[in-house]
Amino acid sequence: MKTLIRNFCALIMLSAAFTVQAQTNAPTGPVILTVTGPDGAEAMFDLEMIDALDQTVTVVETPWYDGTQEFSGPLISELMAHLDVSGSELSIVAANDYAAAMPWSDIENYPVILATRHNGNTMSLRDKGPLFVIYPFDTYPELRNEVVFSRSVWQVKAIKVSP
């Protein structure tokens, strides 16, 4: 079963039409994020690759922690630009298979980050890591509602882009 999947993946990676792969180095560490393009192509990221992107720091108060917290990581829009991918909607998938739909406009209109660090430290699964979608709730008060909180997914493991 596992080998079958691996073979399938390799097959896709080798495909000439796989544009995402062309721009991305292969992950050397454990894969923490898989991005699926609108054409079904996948890109895998380890922490090092994500850290290589431009980092953004967001200091914000959230429902899940007491007081303001500092988060840092790449903008999701930056990540998408890096992969040269665009679509109408992003589906953010968590480790417990929780998934939330995020309109593309969110990452165009707001600096939404895929946080890799919380107060400067990486996050384990127990600490809602390894990746946490953080909206700038404090800078844009209109984001402070249940719908946007539900998009602020923690324990992120994959992003799927719908055409």
């Binding site: 899940w64 480790a95 417990n96 384990s124 699964l125 127990r126 600490d127 809602k128 923690w154 324990q155």
Partner: peptide, 13 residues
Amino acid sequence: IRIYDILYSRVVL
């Protein structure tokens, strides 16, 4: 262990 970690992260809240 993975499921435990997820459970752990959940019970904090």
